[in-house]
Nucleic acid binder design. Structure first.
Lengths: 192, 192
DNA sequence: CGTATTTCTTAACTTAAGTGAACGAGCTAC
DNA sequence: GTAGCTCGTTCACTTAAGTTAAGAAATACG
């Protein structure tokens, strides 16, 4: 477990033993059961999540309907909504599978950043990387049809299609569950 | 011009006179004419742009068609695609209006960051803020229809509808120009 | 187990976006 | 000026997604 975390961090900066000990002393590991809700709409929280094992999702409830906009699996980081604006959350975070997560908040990060300046560098690099990925994903979404998005998802994150309920996938693709079902049937027909 | 830049930076960190001089000595201001292309598909470049005046757009050419995915106006920052992956660009950046920009590249940023550590902090804060904004925009896009997106755009960026050609707006909203035209007519009918 | 609930699929119908084509307004260039 | 372009709109037609409803399949749970 520790190894996954340190492996991830060392993609950005190298760590001394002292730093590793300091990180572990923060007591940040947390296990969560499938179906649990980590964050609810309206709550104030600046927690960040890093997924070591399992899958969590971000969703909104709009007109009584759940709209899933993101999934986070192994090695994904979910950054908090309120970095500056200390506004209540507009979305929920729920557990799709049993998870092992790392949870940290801005106090912990500030403390670590001031103790070990290289963490500041890592945070910047990580933010920049996530931003670039996010922008590519957004562009890809805008420039393609639901069918193309689904085909693309099969290529880029085939695991998601297995581990996540279809109706959650549907809103992730920007459509209704019935449309996804029909779209899948259409693709299957084309292949044969 | 300088004041806009320093005003922007000082939303994140405070600046000494020495630092201001150092920034200006980098000679980063650039004016660009409407219609010019700042970056082409296939080019290698790690330039960042900050818009002081005017409007630039990011677009792809897919099957011979331009697909505009983002607009950047006053006080917006366009971060480079290749932070780590030094891959050629998949998109174009073009000037929608005559612009005054600040252009910087990663060498300059690294130099400045190592000379003035507070810049590292500013970069992280800026990245985090952009990431949060980007995620909200993406979620909003996924959870709403083209019509809702257009109505939302009127609320959040009314200037864009005036200064940008409709066919560019259309792909920004994820639809075809004809559909945007029709959608606008539909909205106008509803109002009356 | 078997019952309840959630999840997925199918179908018929409605609504909206994609497509191809045509037209007119405004601009540009020669 | 006028020939050529781009841009926006409109129309008729096609295609795909939204909606409502019903039923089958899978899962959860007492």
């Amino acid at each position: 477990m520790k190894d996954i975390l340190f492996g991830f961090i060392e993609r950005y900066v190298s760590l001394t033993e002292e730093e590793k000990v300091a990180i572990l002393s923060l007591d940040i590991f947390r296990t969560v059961k499938k179906g649990e809700t980590l964050l609810k709409e309206g709550q104030l929280s600046d927690d960040s999540y890093f997924v070591l094992k399992g899958c969590i999702r971000k969703y909104y409830i709009i007109d009584g309907e759940e709209k899933t906009t993101a999934f986070f699996t192994e090695m994904d980081a979910l950054t908090p909504h309120c970095v500056i604006s200390n506004a209540p959350s507009e979305y929920f975070i729920g557990c799709v599978e049993d998870c092992i997560l790392i949870v940290s908040n801005s106090d912990m990060q500030e403390e670590t950043n001031s103790k070990f300046p290289k963490f500041e560098i890592m945070c910047r690099m990580l933010s920049e990387e996530l931003l670039a990925k996010q922008q590519n994903a957004f562009d890809e979404f805008k420039t393609s049809s639901p069918e193309q998005r689904y085909l693309n998802l099969i290529q880029t994150r085939p695991d998601l299609i297995q581990r996540v309920p279809q109706h959650q996938l549907a809103s992730y693709l920007g459509i209704k569950p019935q449309s996804l079902s029909r779209l899948r049937a259409r693709i299957f027909e084309k292949k044969s």
